[in-house]
Amino acid sequence: MKLEAHSKIRENISFDGNIPIRIFRGYDRGKSLIIPHMHEAIEIIYITQGDLKVLDSTNRSILHPGEFHIFNSNSVHSTSFRGWVLKGIVLQISFDLIKQVVPSADYYKFYFSKGSPKCKKAVIHILESLLAQSESGENFVYLKSYGDVMYLLNILFKQFSEKVSEKKIHLNQKYYDRIFKINNYIEDNYSETITLSRLAKEVHLNPEYLSRFVSKHYGMSFYTYLTNVRLNHASSLISTTDLPILEIAEQTGFANYAQFNKEFKKRFGKLPSQNRKRQ
């Protein structure tokens, strides 16, 4: 489900000014890929049409119409779609807000599988209600939304959560630190030549281990992830600037124009020049 153009592992979310949530309709046609990223917010994706492939940490699943998935705060995740039409609802709730009302929230993780069918229907009803409120334009409607969010959190903590041990919290922090190092380096250097060996040296890991780590947690190889980071930046430049496409290819780290065209069409279904004409 498309959020907004970004390529950093930590997505910056622009929350509503009155209540720190973001809710919107998700829509895709043809194919789309949201590369692995994370954010300090829990995210719920509810599908109404189409099938969405989900990678959450190392867990893979497919969301079908009528189903939703809960992404925990700071969980590395990605989604992909290939089909006719994908529709749904996306809700993001600031983890700072959650910790204000549940100070021990760091010690809980949410799992869709734990909730009963009745509770899942209640969550879907709240998502639909929050979306309708966000589109109503009424004065002070955010007050009702705030109440619905609190009700939703009550359901999530009581019916969909599991307490995490201190040891698991410590292991998770080591995992996050490793993810940050890998992605910060790629984000800062994607326009240059980056090899697996060079990255391994920068993050103090064995190249073979690093290769397995990226494949396991990102759902794609190191080079595929790097290429997608570059493509995200290239797509953004095509949309927001008048730079020549050849110059964009060079600025985003592609070895040559032919490779750029090939990878861009593979990802977005059309050549960069066609994409610019369409926009």
Results as ranks from 00 to 15, higher is better:
His39Pro: 05
Lys181Trp: 02
Glu247Cys: 00
Ile9Val: 13
Gln92Glu: 15
Ala122His: 12
His204Trp: 01
Glu40Leu: 10
Gly83Val: 05
Gly269His: 05
Val203Ala: 06
Ser134Tyr: 08
Ala105Ile: 02
Pro20Met: 09
Glu187Asp: 15
His69Thr: 12
Lys87Gln: 10
Ile35Pro: 03
Leu143Phe: 12
Lys216Tyr: 10
Gln100Leu: 12
Thr252Asn: 09
Ser116Glu: 11
Thr58His: 13
Leu52Ile: 04
Glu138Arg: 11
Lys31Tyr: 04
Ile47Pro: 02
Glu202Arg: 14
Ile98Ser: 02
Phe81Leu: 07
Arg178Asn: 12
His204Ile: 00
His39Ala: 10
His77Asp: 02
Ser116Gly: 01
Ser215Trp: 00
Tyr223Cys: 02
Leu237Phe: 12
Gln251Cys: 05
Asp188Ser: 15
Arg276Phe: 05
Asn183Ser: 12
Ser136His: 05
Lys53Ala: 04
Thr224Ile: 02
Thr58Arg: 15
Thr79Asn: 11
Asp177Thr: 05
Phe15Trp: 08
Leu210Arg: 03
Arg278Gln: 14
Ser165Pro: 09
Ser32Met: 15
Leu63Tyr: 10
Val85Phe: 05
His204Val: 01
Glu43Gly: 08
Glu135Ala: 09
Asn206Cys: 14
Pro36Ser: 02
Ile70Phe: 09
Asp96Leu: 11
Asn172Gly: 12
Ile70His: 06
Met1Ile: 07
Lys31Met: 07
Glu187Ile: 02
Tyr175Val: 00
Ile124Tyr: 00
Ile21Trp: 04
Asn172Glu: 15
Tyr257Trp: 08
Thr241Cys: 05
